[in-house]
Design a binder for these strands. Sequence first.
DNA 1: TGCCTATATTGATGATTGTCAATGTCGAGG
DNA 2: CCTCGACATTGACAATCATCAATATAGGCA
Lengths: 116, 116
Amino acid sequence: MNSLPVLDAASDESCCAPAGSPALGAEEARRKALIFKALADPNRLRLLSIVKAEASGESCVCDLTEPLDLGQPTVSHHLKILVDAGLLHREKRGTWAYYSLVPGALEQTAGLLASL
Amino acid sequence: MNSLPVLDAASDESCCAPAGSPALGAEEARRKALIFKALADPNRLRLLSIVKAEASGESCVCDLTEPLDLGQPTVSHHLKILVDAGLLHREKRGTWAYYSLVPGALEQTAGLLASL
DNA sequence: TGCCTATATTGATGATTGTCAATGTCGAGG
DNA sequence: CCTCGACATTGACAATCATCAATATAGGCA
């Protein structure tokens, strides 16, 4: 898949929004909706919360499975959605996969609301 | 239905979050997800954008139907979801229904991300 | 090499969602 | 009273989604 919706950017010249469109364009709306879709699930919100609360800044899947009372494949699925949305970062070390918040991603998402 | 998710509040003693829970509780996550679900659709984001951009602060359904290229019942359905989420306010004057942003709702929603 | 453990992927299934056509409601004007 | 116009509601349908069981991949270790 690999969508790269709106966040994670800072790559293009997408600094201050096109600003040429009357209200929100269809394509831009579709991309922003992808991010909110990733947030539109209770278990994914809890995953973000747990990862954020971790002192080390990262959590492995095994630490995320039990507090949510979900199967391991389901948690893996949710994590993939959050990574695809640009909210989480995944790093595999040995047998374990460590997930951490993408720095500034939540703030940038909050900014999407202000710039509606 | 009438959910009253998390916003629109300022009524309970819900000022600074319980802060007693380890990470995000299941029930609180469910309520917050309801709001993001309302934002997780391109057409609803465009509706919010159009209403926000209106100089008078409000728009009637007839003004919202054509720019989205959707049927009138569909627009009405989306507007209801946004009202139920506490993001839009609905006021009926005569035959027309006027929709306006709930003051502070978007900012409050942005705050949900910071307090994850 | 071969097993064990952690995570990802696949396939299936029930639930939710976005959309439209048809119909209902209700205020305004004749 | 009757009709018209703006909006809401209902019912149906296709598409998407969340979840799980089963299986695959791949690294560590004996």
